[in-house]
Simulated assay, not measured.
Amino acid sequence: MTEKAEGPAEERHASWLELFFDLVAVAGVGQLAHLVHGSTSWADVGLYVVCFLAFWTAWMCFTVYGNVVGGAAKTMPVLAAMAGLVVMAASVSGIHGEHAKIFAVAYVAVRVLSDRVWEHREDGVRVLVDWPVAQVGFGVTPWLVSIWVPSPWRYWLWALGVLVDLVITFTLSGKRLTENVTAKLASRPGPAVLPTAARLDTAHFGERLGLFTIIVLGEGVLTVTDAMAGAPKWNGPLYWTVFAALGLLATLWAAALREGSGGIPYLAPDRLSPRVLLPLHGLVAGLLAAFATGLGDAIEAAEHQHVEASTRWLLAGCVAALAVIGALAGLRSGRRGWWAAVVLIPGLLIPAAIGFFGGSLAPARLLWLLVVAAGAGLGGWFFAQRASARDEAGRGAPPA
């Protein structure tokens, strides 16, 4: 197998084709978030997780394709994948009925296409060693079978397909994948073709993941705006709730993008391998999308000043999960143990208190408490920076 450098050495940014392709994520995230809007059923939460990860995986397959091949990306396959993702997004509204079949068919079509785009007759076959899911279709098989299986077994097959993809991500080595592709090529008639190892451009890829996170946070801003626009009466409690929601989104943005990398809170660049970074990004994006729905419910609750238990737990659970992810990512990035404690203690205790005892909290107070919980890591970073600056100033000061 030959090793080939993919893309130019200089810093790359998202192309117009990539940015246009990202528009489908705007539609998809908005539709998927409706699966948990006002729901109190764990079955709906589970279906949301499976559908979100399926949509994210299909989007990611073509995102890594554009990242690896750069300007050589073929427009028509990308646009065809975009059409498939649009069909998936539109099918979400009827996912409990016949539209579930359409969702599965569209997903299978996008995944099959994502495998085919790696075969270029003019420059051989690439093997994506950093994320084999884009080329290994075993996880698609349960989805294909589900087309002829009635509910609720259909959804269990979808979950199995997602699980298979995760197993492939963490267990199939680049060497094994290359051997499989080589054997497949050897069985074809004609001259022998050696596969080419393809690796991600990590700097460009971090930007792509960050853009998806921005899209998800943008869904939160849109949800807040729609909820405020639909409020029957604009008064002080509504304004304070809206400001708290926007402050919470800004806090999550700062943690995930300003102080994080690839949309992961407090993660430094190049600290995680793509095989860990990608599933973690999917998890964080799914949490943020569900969180955006909860914000809309909280703002709607400003009228009667009572947040339903399901909404409290959704918001609190998402903040707590993000605190755990952020603390672990920060430790992985070289931050100190005391900083992780600063993140985890309020990041877990405040959401737990809100979930168990926050039934009497007004929506604005509930959201401002979550701002404190989500922003503890930012405060710890700020004080650490100030302490470091004072130490450097002290060492540089002349003796008295």
Rank of each mutant, 00 (worst) to 15 (best):
V343S: 00
G94N: 02
Y65F: 08
A255D: 03
M82I: 00
L238P: 09
A90E: 07
V284F: 02
G174E: 09
W313S: 05
Y48K: 08
M1G: 14
G174N: 11
A245Y: 05
G394L: 15
V45A: 15
S388Q: 13
E11V: 09
F20S: 10
L144T: 14
G379K: 01
L348K: 01
L160Q: 07
A387Q: 14
P274N: 11
D391F: 08
R395D: 13
D165L: 09
A384T: 12
L322Q: 00
A352L: 12
G330N: 00
T171K: 13
E122R: 09
N180A: 14
S360H: 12
L32C: 07
F170L: 07
L35W: 09
G326E: 01
V129G: 11
L280T: 00
A292Q: 08
A81N: 15
G330I: 00
W148Q: 12
M228A: 15
G358P: 07
T169M: 04
G296T: 05
R154M: 14
A397S: 14
A54E: 08
G317W: 00
L113C: 13
R332Q: 14
L200Y: 10
L295K: 10
G359P: 05
E98W: 13
A255T: 12
W16T: 14
H34Q: 15
G210E: 06
G30N: 12
W158Q: 09
A83P: 01
R126K: 15
R12N: 03
G380M: 04
F55M: 11
K101T: 04
G161H: 02
Q31I: 02
E122Y: 02
G347N: 02
L267Y: 04
A323P: 00
L17M: 08
W153D: 10
V108A: 15
G358E: 06
L172R: 11
L217M: 13
A268K: 14
T293Q: 04
Y266G: 03
S151C: 03
G358W: 04
L272S: 12
A376F: 00
R121H: 11
D165K: 03
G379L: 10
A327E: 00
S15C: 09
V117H: 05
R365I: 10
A323V: 00
L85K: 12
V127T: 07
Q385F: 01
T241Q: 06
W253C: 13
A340E: 03
V371K: 02
P191C: 11
G326W: 00
A186F: 00
L344T: 00
G247H: 06
A374E: 05
L157H: 13
G294D: 13
L278K: 07
L222C: 08
G375D: 10
M228L: 14
G161Y: 01
A80Q: 05
A353Q: 05
A376Q: 01
A159F: 11
F138G: 03
W56F: 13
S360E: 10
A373V: 01
A9D: 09
P191L: 14
A256L: 06
K4S: 13
T57V: 10
V193W: 06
L349I: 14
A340K: 04
L287D: 04
L367V: 06
G46T: 08
V319T: 06
G230Y: 01
A292F: 05
F383Y: 12
D123P: 02
P132R: 01
L238V: 10
A227V: 06
W313E: 03
A5I: 11
I168A: 11
R176C: 15
G286K: 01
L19E: 07
L344A: 01
